[in-house]
């Protein structure tokens, strides 16, 4: 029921996204090519980025065992930006797939750094984890800015760190489909992520290869983050807000909840993109900014409202 409703709302959003823009599709001879070249790629990019980021957030929250972290604010997204910056500086002629690989690898390293720090924090103070993440992400972002400033590449930083879809055209976003594939692959081991979320003792007790699942999860997060940063730019808070809403309403049995997390992530990002397109029409507000405003507001409400199962 809720899945059907979600799919219905998402379909409506897709239609809205396809008909929103400067050119009116009615009576336009080039309507079909406009759709194929611009509107469909843009809509697809928003859907994939939203779904994949939401799933990456849900996985990271299980691996770190903390609800208040997500890749874009805890160093993974910044690591990806650092990687792509390095790739541009040191391998300027490399094909985009290689640069993407470097970005993903750097994102993986910075995520491992975050995990190593988190494991040394006292478990009695869960709020330290997101704080350390914010500082760590901020430090990495500062390094990225410094290097970019020295290399005269500052204009790129905005492109990577401020997610927006206005530049998405056919032929310029297709790498995002890899992120979609990674998110789908992650779903197949959703049970294992859920078990890791219960801690090491339960994981070992149930015969899970704990380190291997951790490694797989981190790789998935790094690849999704890197692909998003490079193709459309970082969209913060998606990975934080969406999994938390789903968890509050339906719990953490990822096999059941991940599809919903993906649907809602896709819908939320697409909705924010449409809002960004129409609110100052014909100009655009980047989706990252719109999501930042709406996402944080929703999240605050959520924090102060008790979860559904506590009301009775």
């Amino acid at each position: 029921m809720r899945a059907a409703l979600s799919v219905g709302v998402l379909a409506a959003l897709v239609v809205m996204s396809l008909i929103t823009g400067i050119i009116d599709l009615r009576g336009d001879d080039n309507a079909l090519s406009l759709l194929m070249v611009s509107r469909i790629p843009r809509t697809a990019a928003a859907l994939i980025a939203g779904a994949a980021l939401a799933i990456a957030g849900a996985i990271m929250q299980m691996l770190v065992r903390n609800r208040f972290v997500e890749p874009m604010t805890a160093g993974t997204g910044q690591g990806a930006a650092l990687g792509i910056l390095g790739a541009i500086l040191f391998f300027p002629g490399a094909p985009v797939q290689v640069q993407m690989g470097i970005a993903a690898a750097t994102a993986l390293v910075t995520s491992l750094g975050f995990l190593a720090m988190v494991q040394r924090l006292p478990t009695t103070q869960p709020l330290l984890v997101p704080l350390v993440g914010l500082i760590y992400g901020g430090l990495l972002a500062a390094v990225v800015t410094f290097v970019a400033y020295q290399a005269d590449l500052l204009q790129f930083i905005d492109i990577w760190m401020n997610g927006e879809f206005s530049g998405v055209l056919q032929g310029r976003y297709e790498l995002l489909w890899i992120a979609a594939a990674v998110a789908v692959a992650a779903y197949f081991i959703a049970d294992q992520f859920a078990i890791v979320g219960m801690g090491r003792t339960i994981s070992v007790n149930l015969g899970l290869k704990y380190r291997q699942v951790m490694a797989l999860g981190l790789c998935a997060i790094a690849v999704i983050s890197a692909l998003t940063v490079v193709t459309v730019g970082a969209i913060p808070f998606v990975g934080l807000v969406v999994p938390n809403i789903v968890s509050r309403l339906y719990g953490d049995n990822l096999r059941q909840t991940l599809p919903l997390t993906a649907l809602w992530g896709a819908g939320a990002v697409l909705l924010c993109d449409i809002l960004g397109r129409v609110s100052r029409y014909p100009f655009e507000i980047p989706v990252g900014t719109v999501f930042g405003v709406i996402g944080t507001a929703v999240f605050l409400v959520l924090l102060y409202k008790r979860p559904a199962h506590e009301r009775s």
Partner: peptide
Amino acid sequence: SDTLARSLAILPQASDIAPRL
């Protein structure tokens, strides 16, 4: 480990469980 998991179980400390299940 997964073979052992079918013959040996350890009860975890109750405070370990974080996820909402």
